[in-house]
């Protein structure tokens, strides 16, 4: 039997090429999944950090404790997401490396969650505008083909349902409370409204993950989001903002000026004392 060396060579080359292609696809898929997880987790990370700032400074002890609970829930979610992301990255980076050692442009949270605790109206308005989205998002993520994400979503839904109730109640209290609180809540809603549209933007990772049956198609959540939010604002005797001008960029790592200062604190220890265990 004669062996055609050329033929073998060709077939080997083809095989290598095929394997390379598959591994690129796996890498791409992993990279998309990794970025997708970061997109979800960064929202919880930055909002958790904002809520953490309030600990000890709330309007009553009871509210203080409640806000810290929200922060703790969010950080709990963050840890689950980043531990999973760390496994996918497989390059030895830990949850803390991912959380604390990226550059500003590499954080891909939405702009809404990084807005400061200007006053309690801003804090609750921000929470409410995010919670309504977050809950709807998690309900969909629960159906993800990725079992880890689906499991994290199932656990988080219980926490976020409570957040949503808590923040909605406060929007109603402040909206329909005193004249002063109504003014303040209206101002907060007006100021933060411009960041709501970004919640429904799709990134490349989003699109890829939706195609895989892993990700949530956020564009489909938009209508019911605005319907729900508007109804609640009306119940709270607040005006639904009419502005059609929206800010975006967070999902591409282009943030407001506030994020840099947050990261300076979040990353301080890891940057000042690199490669140490705490």
């Amino acid at each position: 039997m004669s062996i055609d060396r050329d033929e073998i060579e060709i077939s080997l080359k083809a095989r290598c090429e095929a394997i390379r292609k598959v591994s690129i696809e796996v890498n791409m898929k992993n990279e998309n999944l990794y970025n997708y997880i970061l997109g979800i987790a960064d929202n919880s990370l930055i909002l958790g950090q904002r809520m953490g700032e309030l600990c000890g400074h709330g309007p009553t002890l009871e509210t203080d404790i409640a806000c810290t609970n929200i922060s703790l829930d969010l950080f709990g979610q963050v840890r689950s997401y980043f531990q999973y992301a760390s496994k996918i990255a497989g390059d030895g980076r830990t949850e803390d490396d991912i959380a604390m050692l990226r550059k500003e442009r590499e954080y891909i949270n939405v702009l809404l969650v990084e807005q400061p605790n200007t006053d309690f109206a801003y804090t609750m308005a921000r929470q409410f505008l995010f919670d309504v989205y977050h809950l709807a998002f998690l309900v969909e993520l629960q159906k993800s083909a990725d079992l880890t994400l689906s499991a994290i979503a199932s656990k988080s839904i219980k926490e976020v349902s409570y957040h949503e109730r808590f923040s909605s109640d406060w929007v109603k209290r402040l909206g329909d409370g005193t004249e002063e609180s109504n003014t303040k809540m209206q101002e907060a809603i007006d100021a933060l409204w411009t960041y709501t549209d970004e919640l429904f933007h799709q990134t490349e990772a989003d699109k890829a993950m939706v195609a895989e049956g892993i990700g949530v198609d956020v564009t489909k959540l938009k209508d019911s989001y605005y319907r729900h939010v508007s109804e609640l604002l009306e119940e709270a005797t607040l005006q639904v903002p009419e502005s059609k001008y929206f800010q975006k960029g967070g999902k591409e790592g282009i943030h407001t000026e506030h994020l840099g200062y947050m990261l300076a604190e979040l990353q301080y220890m890891q940057r000042t004392y690199p490669n140490m265990e705490w």
Binding site: E62, A66, N69, F166
Partner: peptide, 18 residues
Amino acid sequence: HATDAEMALENARDVYTR
């Protein structure tokens, strides 16, 4: 302390069942 029963329930959840 809470303004009404609803808030009292929520606060109790956060304070006494952590």
